[in-house]
Design a binder for these strands. Structure first.
Lengths: 348, 348
DNA sequence: TTGTACGCGTTATCAA
DNA sequence: TTGATAACGCGTACAA
């Protein structure tokens, strides 16, 4: 902008203080004066410079969101919730995308310093205690979504329960040899999502009195290719599983691809259940554990805004549950197909 | 931050000017002095306040991207390219998502005023001449991607050619009754993408000497539901088409869903070709016209950065082509199936 | 080579 | 109710 508050003040024949008061709807301005100033503002198309404003207020009106691979469906569905409430509040959404751990660490150490955002929403990224306390020290408000820290308010879904239910469901269909493709993050991220899902898997297996077969557990990137590669391993085992639980829908889609390549019929010979409940899973008729991503995003950002207005809130843990969506990639185990059919062929 | 440039100067026993020179690598500082200042900076963990800096430089180091429905696959694939080059340059990515025309217009008028971004990348949104000149007046650098304005450098794909080739391909397979599901934007956007695709459609039809049947052209939202609804119309026609060209992959996916509901076999009874070439199209084995989304995003942002460094460049038009990816949702027309089979049933 | 002082556009304080 | 003026933290002429 070229016209400043001084121009307005001069032309309106008042002091800059008065103009400022008018802009900010501060009381103590005679209506007639306000009118006059307002008309000059309109005439000059004057807009206060946001940078100069934040120079004093120490606020930018922007919210940072730090996420891994922000273009993945699971993430974008969360972002949808985040964006809509942010736009409603006329706040900017700035994205910090991280694709490896060094990048993540850099953001975590630098973001508190450069005060370019009023608050930070961390999605699906683990934050160490040291990091969370550096946030505190810098006075940066932070909320976690799909991640947990005892020191920061966190919005999570119960991944143990989710995985447990997924496997339980497979068990209820009669499956006994159940493969698990867990997720890992490129680089050295340590997602506790993955750990929790593994725990849920074990718990369900244990309850059913089933032994744990290490070869049935694979770890892969949280995407199609990762799931596909892991599934290739699982499905070319001597005794391959009759069902596979994938830690994300994208990985489950990879499983479907692998099965297709190997001419294994789903769900006839192989049951597949995913996790996340992303939009495309519906089209693929993929059975999955649905996470309320949109709501998590909305709630997370709402909490963050609240914290920015009223700092010094005690951290809170908000839990959601994953819910089973039964579709057509799972079916009851039948002994004459799948594993045993494969065994029969082997026996030739 | 609490420590300022003054603290550093005082502790290092120099003037603020010297500290500033050190920070900005300005020449004319004795090495020993530089050392001393640097060590104090490190000791105090001092970081210059970006807000105060932009107060002087008039730059924020942020790039705005204004997009419709930024969570759609076609858009996110472009954003992937945008984000990666931006992160590389240590610039922030701020997203302005628009879901209707009034929101778009508000951003277009306000963004030039509030100088919160150094440049603006407009994706898939039409910008009126008046808007483009307001950008100029405000000195805001702008580049268009998947959109065109004679006054702004634009990165586009030739949609006429793309649609033409798609229909041409269907024609080469022997199809004569070809349905077209074009896109429209919620609200009152007027995407020229849609117009161009319609032109390409007509051109191919005309060359083949085929008449234009208005009932075979539908317009829908650029998403799954839109495509599905439009396909339901097309596929329940007395004489339904033997092939459908959808203006986006998401719409094509909707067509697949509709066909599934109507028990119409793809590609046996119906050929489907999409547009965009989003990742999921591969899994679905959808034949499609692929757009180089990633490259478009990368190139667009590269141009924008260049313009910010060197303003007053003449606007340039950069064209890409869409390329056919043949997969399995299309097959040669066979008279004994599809339309005629349907007719036969009707005849009973 | 280095320090001082001013300006960037606001808001806030304090007399008047 | 108002206007002048001091911050806010930094970059940069200009003087030393």
């Amino acid at each position: 902008m070229f016209t400043t508050i001084h121009d307005v003040a001069r032309i309106a024949g008042v002091g800059v203080g008065t103009v400022s008061r008018v802009i900010n709807n501060s009381p103590g301005v005679r209506p007639s004066t306000r009118e006059k100033v307002l008309s000059v503002i309109a005439e000059l198309h004057y807009k206060p410079d946001p940078i100069a404003r934040s120079m004093i207020s120490k606020r930018t009106g922007a919210i940072g969101v730090i996420v891994p691979f922000f273009t993945r469906p699971f993430i974008t569905e969360m972002l949808k919730g985040v964006e809509s409430t942010l736009a409603h509040l006329e706040k900017e959404l700035v994205i910090y995308n991280v694709e490896n751990d060094s990048q993540r660490d850099r953001y975590f150490t630098e973001l508190p310093m450069r005060r370019k955002v009023d608050g930070l929403l961390v999605i699906s990224l683990p934050v160490a205690d040291a990091v969370s306390s550096s946030f505190k020290d810098a006075g940066l408000q932070v909320v976690l979504v799909d991640a947990y820290s005892p020191y920061l308010t966190s919005v999570v879904v119960d991944n143990i329960q989710g995985a447990y239910e997924a496997v339980k469901y497979l068990l209820s269909l009669g499956h006994r040899r159940i493969g698990f493709i867990n997720g890992i993050i490129e680089g050295n991220f340590k997602f506790n999502q993955a750990n929790d899902r593994l725990i849920g898997f074990h718990r369900a297996l244990g309850e059913a009195g089933l032994p744990f077969s290490p070869e049935l557990v694979q770890t892969s990137a949280w995407d199609r290719d990762g799931g596909k590669a892991a599934a290739m391993q699982l499905l070319t085992l001597k005794k391959r599983p009759s069902a596979i639980f994938a830690a994300s829908d994208m990985q489950a889609i990879g499983v479907i691809e692998a099965a297709r390549m190997l001419h294994i019929d789903i769900p006839g010979e192989l049951s597949v259940i995913g996790y996340d409940g992303i939009e495309i899973s519906e089209l693929l008729e993929l059975t999955t554990m649905h996470q309320p991503t949109l709501q998590m995003g909305e709630l997370g950002i709402a909490r963050l805004i609240e914290q920015i207005e009223h700092p010094d809130q005690a951290p809170e843990l908000i839990r959601f549950n994953a819910t089973l969506i039964e579709r057509r990639t799972t079916s009851p185990y039948s002994a004459d197909k799948g594993t045993d059919a494969f065994d029969a062929i082997e026996a030739l």
